[in-house]
Nucleic acid binder design. Structure first.
Lengths: 349, 349
DNA sequence: ACAGATTGCACAATCGATGCAGCATTGAGG
DNA sequence: CCTCAATGCTGCATCGATTGTGCAATCTGT
């Protein structure tokens, strides 16, 4: 920098190179051929620009071109394995396309969600992804008013394309695994498998509960009352419910399908207070994945959602210019107990 | 929206209200009092703007005011508990200040890091935070050229203020705990505590290793050769090293301090292959925290870094207008084995 | 009733990059 | 020698919001 305080602009480069600002703009961009700027001029301008440490002002460019080069994503929270993976993929795909990702978390508050969408619109993001939307219709309304293409992820909306995890298949497969792995004691009520955690008003949980019921019915033992305990995501309430259940049954049931890692933390809080032998009479499954959960005192069947695949599909929808409210499914992956190291080490090793 | 495709601008509002664009701008902003716009006019303009769903174009505003309202942060990766917590806090503090956070991950690549900083500069972010910088000097050079205030987090730089975790204290305390908790067998070499994982070229690891050595020395048993095994962060190499160590010693050492969760995954891979009783002769510590790691087959002493505190300090530096390369420390928290539920549940529950 | 102050607003320049519409200059062709 | 086309560039308006300046109209005091 020769001049102390401000960043160089095309006018500075124009003055230094003796060319006009429009020539500089063309020379530094892609359009210099079609605007018949000679190669020599382009070289000169580029070297001067490089020497001055010039870089374009995206606000000015965005204002003029009515595109910002930004792509927005709303997620419920950063501090969560699943959504953090989404962020990582979201960013990677954005970069592939030369876009800059802006990720904001809504804390699952509809009001916050709307505020964020509004903000991203004022920054003129070129596209927007909304993961785990709490009020998809409101979001679509705002985006449509701003003429902004958007895709829902993980939780579908009616006003735009959506990509969701195949919660039904994931939960059905997991249930079937638990059913076939469960130890049979003969005591009827203890031979059942219980579903714990999640909110039935939540789209993903509803699909999973539906799959759980169907899989049990298909196996010849339709779920009885109280076999689905959708007590929310908080560890504490999951711990309370599993304790109450064990108390009611006089011991652990043959199997437990825990819906979410946070609920699993609560279940774990109770299980870890039991003698290890008690656990051998039960099979545990968890919808969602954590590498450390694979090393507990007992085997845990887990489901890993394909965050990368979800985001890949979402970008594909943008690339293909789809705007109808289609619904695309991405399959989650079943993780057998204790197989973590086979996979993880081959990636990171 | 009365008009189909484009967003309303102040000129639209001006036309509809019969006022001039500058009056509209003032009325919608903070400056209408000092520009002596009557309250009645302000009301009229605001209601028309609301009816039109007007919201400002930040690119235009940013261009004019030379501020974007964006605040950037570079992190190594999203998909990591520590950095995800930082993102969460970063965003919360940004919102408090009416700023929009832009978080990008460098994958620990110096080149990528520079590219990101450059990009954030072209978007005219008002401030920038760089966590886990790989090339702090280059970053400072770029930011200074663009006249951009920035703060280093977790890994210090020489060209700007830095906020780092007190790695020395965290590791020293953890080492002391392991020392006092370790079972004494009498077999000299097996009574030692080993440090596994991390990269000594990395600032944080170097501080921790230094603390580990000092704490051992202070306890009267200075570390021998091979007692610090800084084999990187990959699970696989940590697994290999712990296996080799056990082989060399003829069993587990009295204690292991594992430097990072990823290395811990590897150590776990080996430990889980041993009979549970072997583990009772050893005390395990891990620098970094995971709630599930608190429920393994054996107790684990963990250190939780204060991501929220780091970010709070970083913002404080910005607020206080500090630009000298000061170094501020934030203390990490020691987590005793199996105490997770006492804490977590009171937050979420 | 008239100078001077105050109120309430409009005009125009500006931020930096872009792109359309020209405008000299050179060379070729008749 | 003159026309026409190609070449290589410049000038100017524009994107939407902000801000310094200016200027009527009304009000205040005497």
């Amino acid at each position: 920098m020769t001049r102390a305080s401000r960043k160089a602009t095309i006018y500075d480069i124009a003055r230094l190179s003796g060319a006009s600002a429009s020539t500089v703009s063309a020379a530094l961009g892609e359009s210099w051929r079609e605007r018949r700027i000679s190669e020599a001029t382009v070289e000169t301008i580029r070297s001067i620009a490089a020497a001055q440490g010039y870089s374009a002002n995206m606000q000015a460019r965005g204002l003029r071109k009515a595109r910002s080069g930004l792509v927005g994503m709303v997620i419920p929270l950063h501090d969560n394995r699943f959504f953090a993976s989404m962020s990582q993929s979201f960013e990677a795909f954005a970069r592939e396309r030369g876009l800059v990702p802006v990720i904001a978390s809504s804390m699952r508050e509809p009001q916050e969600e709307r505020r964020i969408v509004e903000t991203l619109i004022t920054y003129a993001v070129d596209y927007m992804f909304i993961a785990g939307a709490t009020d998809p219709d409101a979001v679509s309304a705002m985006c449509n008013a701003a003429n902004l293409r958007h895709v829902f992820v993980d939780l579908p909306g009616r006003g735009a394309p959506s990509v969701v995890s195949d919660n039904y298949k994931g939960a059905a497969d997991l249930t079937r695994r638990l059913l076939s792995d469960r130890p049979i004691t003969g005591a009827a009520c203890r031979d059942r498998i219980y579903f714990i955690g999640g909110d039935p008003a939540d789209y993903a949980s509803a699909r999973r509960i539906e799959a759980f019921r169907d899989a049990l019915t298909e196996a010849g033992s339709p779920p009885g009352p109280g076999q689905v305990i959708a007590c929310g995501y908080a560890p504490r309430s999951a711990m309370r419910e599993i304790a109450a259940l064990c108390n009611r049954l006089g011991g652990l049931p043959a199997g437990v399908l825990v819906n979410s890692l946070t609920a699993f933390e609560g279940v774990l809080g109770h299980l870890s207070s039991l003698p290890l032998d008690d656990l051998r009479g039960s099979v545990i499954g968890c919808y969602d994945y954590d590498p450390f959960a694979a090393y507990l005192q007992f085997p845990v069947h887990m489901v890993r959602q394909d965050a990368h695949g979800l985001i890949r599909e979402a970008y594909r929808i943008i690339d293909q210019n789809v705007t109808d409210p289609v619904l695309r499914m991405v399959e989650p992956e079943q993780i057998a107990p204790r197989t973590f190291y086979d996979r993880a080490f081959s990636d990171q090793g």
